[in-house]
Amino acid sequence: MQPMSLLVTTCVLFVGSHLLLSHPLRAPLAGRMGERSFLIVYSVVAIATLVMLVQAWRGMPAEPPIWAVGDGLWMFASLLVLFASILFMGSLIGNPALPAPNAAFAAQGAARGVFAITRHPMMWGFALWAFAHALVVPTPGQFILSATIIFLALVGSAGQDVKKARLMGDTWRHWAARTSFIPFARQLSGRGSWGDTIPRPHALFGGIAVWLAATWAHGALGYMVAGIWRWVG
């Protein structure tokens, strides 16, 4: 199989298995196997398809960029990844969208920090991270990989809305009414306060730390130097 065909195939497997096991197949399989056994199967499939995708990506030949990438675009992409990192770190605490025992309790609180920005900060963090990579690595292979991650993150978020509404009922619907799917949509429409979107310390400082470490590792592992490290050192 040609490298590009292999990449497309593994992307389809990665996305397809996630969506099928997260939604239409989850209830019947979990009911038959038990929740714990299902989670084991889900994890094995997710890891296996991810490894296949990474291997296919590594096997792609060098491709010429579609546009030139200068310092301005690098700065914008770096700031986008920083924002994505803050969203991700903020999503780890008090996130009603996660399958946590206290999800219903968290959904009763006010939307503050990253949750005032979007009710799916983790998924939008992944999507923005992928988009930033497409900006600075403008090749067909990267476009396919980034599009795969963006599609899975955003379609997965929409699926979470449906599933959480079914599982949590009015608790989730009231939470969704106090938040927005698209980042900053409530603020831009005048329905939310910009002050509420200030990230909490664990999101802000954790996001900065993750951004610095990840962009440093990008260059240290032999990939393109990224983030602030392009201009420091």
Score class of each variant (00 low, 15 high):
residue 90 G to R: 14
residue 90 G to A: 15
residue 91 S to D: 11
residue 91 S to A: 15
residue 91 S to Q: 12
residue 93 I to N: 15
residue 93 I to D: 15
residue 94 G to C: 11
residue 94 G to L: 11
residue 95 N to Y: 12
residue 95 N to H: 10
residue 96 P to D: 12
residue 97 A to M: 14
residue 97 A to E: 11
residue 97 A to I: 04
residue 97 A to V: 05
residue 98 L to F: 11
residue 99 P to D: 10
residue 100 A to L: 14
residue 100 A to H: 13
residue 100 A to V: 15
residue 100 A to F: 07
residue 102 N to R: 09
residue 103 A to F: 07
residue 104 A to Y: 04
residue 105 F to D: 15
residue 106 A to D: 14
residue 106 A to P: 10
residue 106 A to N: 15
residue 107 A to E: 02
residue 107 A to I: 01
residue 108 Q to E: 15
residue 108 Q to G: 15
residue 109 G to C: 08
residue 109 G to K: 09
residue 109 G to Q: 08
residue 109 G to A: 07
residue 109 G to F: 03
residue 110 A to G: 13
residue 111 A to R: 07
residue 111 A to K: 01
residue 111 A to M: 09
residue 111 A to N: 09
residue 112 R to M: 14
residue 113 G to N: 06
residue 113 G to M: 04
residue 115 F to S: 06
residue 117 I to R: 04
residue 117 I to E: 01
residue 117 I to Q: 00
residue 118 T to I: 02
residue 118 T to H: 04
residue 118 T to K: 02
residue 119 R to T: 05
residue 119 R to F: 05
residue 122 M to G: 03
residue 122 M to W: 00
residue 122 M to F: 00
residue 123 M to K: 02
residue 124 W to H: 09
residue 124 W to T: 05
residue 125 G to I: 00
residue 126 F to R: 05
residue 128 L to N: 01
residue 128 L to V: 12
residue 129 W to Q: 12
residue 130 A to S: 10
residue 130 A to E: 07
residue 131 F to T: 13
residue 131 F to D: 11
residue 132 A to C: 09
residue 132 A to W: 01
residue 133 H to V: 12
residue 133 H to F: 12
residue 133 H to T: 08
residue 133 H to A: 11
residue 133 H to N: 12
residue 134 A to K: 05
residue 134 A to C: 10
residue 134 A to E: 06
residue 135 L to K: 13
residue 136 V to F: 02
residue 136 V to A: 02
residue 137 V to T: 13
residue 138 P to Y: 05
residue 138 P to N: 05
residue 138 P to L: 09
residue 139 T to G: 07
residue 139 T to I: 10
residue 140 P to S: 03
residue 140 P to E: 08
residue 141 G to N: 08
residue 142 Q to P: 00
residue 143 F to V: 09
residue 144 I to T: 01
residue 144 I to L: 10
residue 145 L to E: 03
residue 146 S to E: 10
residue 146 S to P: 03
residue 147 A to V: 07
residue 147 A to K: 02
residue 147 A to W: 14
